[in-house]
Simulated scan of single mutants.
Amino acid sequence: MEKVPMTVRGEQKLLKELEVLLKRRPLISQAIAEARELGDLKENAEYHAAREEQGICEAQIRDIEYKLSVAQVIDITTLANTGKIIFGTTIKLLDLDSDKEMTYCIVGDDEADIKQNLISINSPIARGLIGKLTGDEVQITTPGGLKEFEIMDVQYI
Rank of each mutant, 00 (worst) to 15 (best):
G135R: 03
G10N: 07
T103R: 08
K42R: 15
E34I: 12
A45L: 12
G135C: 05
A45C: 01
F87S: 10
V138Y: 08
L93V: 04
G145R: 06
N44F: 00
T89N: 07
D99C: 01
K23S: 13
V138K: 11
D153L: 13
I28K: 04
M1T: 09
T82D: 00
T142Y: 03
I76H: 04
L133G: 00
K115I: 06
G145P: 07
E137S: 09
G55N: 13
D109R: 14
E37I: 09
F87R: 12
F87E: 10
I121Q: 07
F87K: 13
I76W: 00
M6D: 00
E101C: 01
I106W: 11
V8E: 07
E137P: 04
I151P: 14
A112H: 14
D113T: 10
D63R: 15
K84N: 03
C105A: 13
K100F: 02
L22T: 06
V154S: 06
C105L: 06
T103A: 02
C105K: 14
G144I: 13
G83N: 01
R62G: 10
R24T: 10
L96K: 07
L18D: 11
N81A: 08
S123K: 12
G128S: 10
A33T: 04
I130V: 11
L18C: 12
S98Q: 06
A49C: 03
G39N: 09
I85Q: 05
V70E: 01
R24L: 15
I91D: 14
E65L: 04
E53I: 09
G145L: 05
L14K: 14
G144L: 14
G131F: 05
M102Q: 10
A112P: 09
I85K: 03
F87A: 10
I121W: 04
S98N: 06
K100R: 05
M102A: 13
E111G: 12
T141Y: 13
E101V: 07
N122F: 04
L27I: 02
I91T: 15
T134R: 12
M1G: 15
Q30S: 15
C105P: 00
I61P: 14
D99V: 08
A126Y: 01
E53K: 15
E52W: 09
K23F: 11
Q139C: 07
E34K: 14
F87I: 14
M152Q: 12
L96G: 04
G88N: 09
T103F: 02
A31L: 11
N44D: 00
D95I: 00
A33H: 08
M152G: 01
D95V: 00
I91F: 13
I86P: 02
L118G: 08
A126W: 04
A71R: 05
